[in-house]
């Protein structure tokens, strides 16, 4: 059997210089999908001991501890991010710590592609494909939510005020990339508050 190796869905893509914001793929992040009952104290503490950080309970939030980042996806679901090379070890720790507790932890590193958008006007660019009010105070740095973006399912993570990560399923990565290239084309910037 040939050795399995990771290849990005966007590996052949080079960000052109025709966009008004910086768009690039982040392929070095590995992901673990974790599900469990928030009300189960044993589960929460087992997850904390393996990850080093408490699972966020508040909707649409995220926590970070060193290389480990935990994104809230639902009341019983989290996405754990870490370096791609560390995933296997972290997943082993997590499973060992969770033991027989009713829960699920799976390596989903190759499930989604991450596209990082950076620069002035990222929010306005994303709003071309979404009905959400991304410039409202709800979307402060650290906010995570799943959304409908350009008619496909996407996960939004506001990293900094002008830096947003978009997670799309791998099979949609090419389409999302094409959409962003068009939406962010130079000269097509939308100024929502031109006088501010």
């Amino acid at each position: 059997m040939a050795d399995l190796h990771f290849e990005s869905a966007l590996a052949h893509r080079i960000a052109p210089d025709t966009t008004s914001i910086s768009i690039r793929e982040i392929s070095e992040r590995g992901m673990i999908d974790l599900r469990g009952n928030t009300a189960d104290k044993k589960f929460m503490s087992a997850a904390k001991s393996a990850l080093g950080v408490e699972l966020p309970k508040a909707p649409r939030t995220s926590t970070t501890f060193g290389d480990v980042q935990v994104l809230w996806l639902s009341t019983d679901q989290w996405l754990i991010l870490t370096g791609r090379a560390r995933v296997t070890a972290l997943l082993g720790d997590l499973r060992k710590s969770l033991g027989t507790i009713f829960s699920l932890a799976v390596d989903v590193s190759d499930m989604r592609s991450i596209i990082r958008l950076e620069g002035d006007g990222v929010r306005e660019t994303l709003m071309k494909g979404s009905t959400l009010d991304l410039i409202s105070e709800d979307y402060a740095p650290g906010t995570v939510r799943r959304m409908r973006f350009a008619e496909i399912a996407a996960l939004l993570h506001v990293v900094e005020q002008n830096m947003i990560d978009i997670y799309v399923f791998r099979s949609y990565a090419d389409y999302a990339w094409e959409f962003l290239m068009k939406a962010a084309r130079k000269g097509s910037e939308v100024k929502l508050f031109p006088n501010s």
Binding site: T131, L132, R148
Partner: peptide, 18 residues
């Protein structure tokens, strides 16, 4: 278009998000 609020996660969106 109607605006919906999810009582579980508090997210607001229009009906295409729901």
């Amino acid at each position: 278009m109607i605006t919906v609020n999810c009582p579980v996660c508090g997210a607001e969106g229009d009906e295409t998000d729901f």
